[in-house]
Amino acid sequence: MPTVIESVSKLYGRISQLESQRLADHPMEREITLRAIRKGLSSASASGTGPKRIADIGGGPGKIAFALADEGHDVDLIDLTPELIRLAQTEQDQRRAAGNRPLLRSIAVGNALDKSALPEGAYDAVLLLGPLYHLLEESERATAVSHALELARPDGGLVFVAFVTIDAHLRDVAMRNPGKIVELKEFYSKYLIDGRYEKFEPGQEKPTVQSFHTRPDDVRAFFAKHFADSLQLVPSTSPILFSWWSCGQPRES
């Protein structure tokens, strides 16, 4: 079944405070992600050495967006979940009141699958660090990346994407509740094949959790299939995410 966008939004609405605290509780993920972004922004394909214009799509409460703003970049933030956007706006308001902290250029509710109000071809970098592992259908993931490419500068703009790996999820389950894999043997047998992690509450037709997990080779195959003519891929890994940054136009390896 296609992604139930409403369910994803409701999930993060329920856990908005936890999501806001997550990168503070897991600073390694935050710092590895920022390091990968900095590496891309300093590459030869990025425009100049000064501040960059960045779109953070699905950036939640803006922890990465605000960190990039603190480094001098001009950042627009959108996210699917109104509760997370309200948290980002609260931090924006606090920064504005303090008068000495960089602000985001804009903050708004938005969907990676829809044509956003952000200007096409205007961004040195577009971040898709959250949406792709909540989109169950390959066609949906391809649409999200295509939209990001339309926002990136056509002469070498960067698109940063992140996926959750199947191995990362299984490690997490093994640490927290190893018996779960045996108890849900049928579920995990299917999960190992298609990477779909869906949870339904008793009596509910719509899922409460929808997530897509994958493997590095499958990520390469996805980009080779859909974007071989428009992207140059450079991998960056962490224990939690398999992240890539990619150029708006191909270049020599």
Rank of each mutant, 00 (worst) to 15 (best):
H73T: 14
D74M: 09
V75Y: 09
D76Q: 15
L77K: 12
I78G: 05
D79L: 05
D79Q: 08
L80S: 02
T81D: 10
T81S: 15
P82H: 05
P82E: 08
E83Y: 00
L84D: 01
L84I: 09
R86G: 04
T90A: 14
Q92N: 06
D93E: 14
Q94L: 10
Q94P: 01
Q94D: 11
R96S: 15
R96L: 05
G99W: 08
G99H: 06
N100C: 12
R101G: 01
R101F: 09
P102K: 06
L103Q: 13
L103H: 03
L104N: 06
L104G: 05
L104W: 09
L104K: 03
R105G: 05
S106E: 05
I107Q: 08
A108G: 02
G110Y: 04
N111L: 15
N111M: 01
A112L: 12
A112D: 07
D114A: 14
D114H: 14
S116D: 00
A117Q: 13
A117V: 13
P119W: 00
A122W: 03
Y123F: 15
Y123K: 13
D124E: 10
D124F: 07
A125G: 14
L127T: 13
L128R: 08
L128V: 10
P131L: 04
Y133P: 02
H134D: 04
L135P: 05
L136V: 08
E137C: 12
E137A: 15
S139P: 00
E140T: 02
T143V: 12
A144K: 01
A144T: 00
S146H: 09
H147M: 08
H147Q: 14
L149S: 04
E150V: 00
E150W: 00
A152F: 04
A152M: 02
A152G: 04
R153D: 12
P154H: 13
P154S: 14
P154T: 07
D155L: 04
D155Q: 09
G156S: 11
G157I: 10
L158G: 01
V161M: 10
V161Y: 03
A162I: 02
A162G: 07
A162M: 03
F163T: 06
V164Y: 02
T165S: 15
D167F: 07
A168G: 02
H169Y: 09
H169R: 03
D172I: 00
V173E: 12
V173D: 06
M175S: 12
N177H: 10
N177I: 01
K180N: 11
V182Y: 05
E183N: 03
L184H: 11
K185C: 10
K185I: 13
K185F: 11
E186I: 07
K190C: 03
Y191K: 06
I193D: 11
D194I: 05
G195N: 06
G195F: 06
E198M: 10
E198N: 05
F200N: 07
F200M: 03
F200Y: 15
E201C: 04
E201P: 00
P202G: 11
G203L: 02
E205S: 12
K206Q: 11
K206I: 11
P207S: 03
T208F: 04
V209H: 10
Q210S: 06
S211Y: 01
S211E: 12
F212T: 02
F212Q: 01
R215L: 13
D218C: 01
V219W: 01
R220A: 00
